[in-house]
């Protein structure tokens, strides 16, 4: 009974709207009105014009690299929190990690521009220290800048699920492995890492899927060559006033992300089973 309000709310404002997007993607924009004849024209245009597939490919690559970087950098922090921090201080650490994530996203992204820019913190620091003569230009207005900024923005998302999975590991299993003669490193790879896999998978999904939908970071940091598929969706809806095309792009992007996520989860499951 009580689940009804949130369920109906999500049904009305999530499931039905997504169905509407699917429907729209099969219609076409006819100047000011929508032509509701069923057609695959939008999808044909998507795969015919290289711009769309290039943007999608770049988006998937950026999301993939961001996910990899975020998760690899986050794992040791989560491990440290779970195994080396006194229980009483764990929530303070977690709180410190989550604070930056709650503070003005737009301004945080903009500040990366200040850090990475031509006269930015890094360049003026390096030039001032005499390490380089000319400011580095490969760190702003390109894909690298987008990756750095997104990896920063999604860091807490990666740490928390891994931390939770590590917390659940029965510590006596690790002791048992050590007693049976495994080294600390082989214990990590044969006991701790496989047992923390659910958290790792959750971290990968919770970073990979949302990053595809961000248009702020590529818009501010990406320059001309760093735009992503979400920028195209935004342009179709808000500037070109072509909702059906935007809908089709959104559907293709979402389908690709979901497919990749499912393949990843499937492969992971098979790997874990193969070991067990």
């Amino acid at each position: 009974m009580l689940l009804a309000p949130p369920f109906l709310y999500a049904l009305a404002l999530l499931a039905l709207p997504i169905l509407a997007v699917v429907l729209f993607s099969f219609w076409t924009q006819d100047f000011m009105t929508i032509d509701t004849g069923f057609t695959l024209a939008n999808y044909r245009e998507f795969f015919d014009k290289p711009i769309y597939t290039v943007l999608l490919g770049r988006s998937l690559m950026v999301s993939g690299i961001v996910t990899l970087v975020t998760v690899i950098l986050a794992y040791p922090v989560a491990y440290f929190l779970s195994f080396h921090v006194a229980p009483a201080r764990k929530s303070l650490w977690l709180f410190l990690i989550t604070i930056p994530f709650w503070t003005s996203y737009l301004i945080r992204v903009f500040l990366w521009k200040v850090i990475l820019g031509y006269n930015g913190v890094i360049n003026s620091g390096l030039v001032g220290a005499g390490i380089i003569d000319e400011p580095l230009s490969f760190i702003l207005y390109n894909v690298n800048a987008v990756i750095i900024t997104l990896a920063h923005a999604f860091a807490p998302f990666a740490i928390l699920p891994i931390f939770v999975a590590l917390e659940k590991i029965d510590r006596s299993l690790i002791e048992a492995s050590r007693d049976l003669g495994e080294t600390r490193i082989s214990t990590f790879f044969r006991v701790t890492l496989p047992l923390s896999m659910p958290g790792l998978v959750a971290a990968v999904l919770i970073v990979f899927i949302p990053t595809i939908g961000d248009y702020v970071t590529p818009e501010l940091m990406g320059g001309a060559g760093g735009k992503l598929i979400a920028n195209m969706i935004q342009t179709q809806f808000l500037q070109l006033n072509n909702a059906p095309m935007g809908a089709a792009i959104a559907i293709v992007a979402m389908t690709c992300v979901t497919a990749i996520a499912l393949v990843f989860v499937g492969l992971n499951r098979r790997w874990l089973r193969g070991r067990g």
Binding site: L3, A10, L13, A15, P17, I34, I206, T211, I212, G213
Partner: peptide
């Protein structure tokens, strides 16, 4: 129960732009 709660929690992992465009279509066009 699990399925329903999972569905309600879905916006947590959905790209925000999907939520944005789907609601824009419903509010404006539908």
């Amino acid at each position: 129960k699990g399925g329903i709660i999972g569905f309600v929690m879905l916006p947590l992992v959905l790209p925000e732009i999907i939520v944005a465009v789907s609601l824009l279509i419903v509010m404006r066009q539908v």
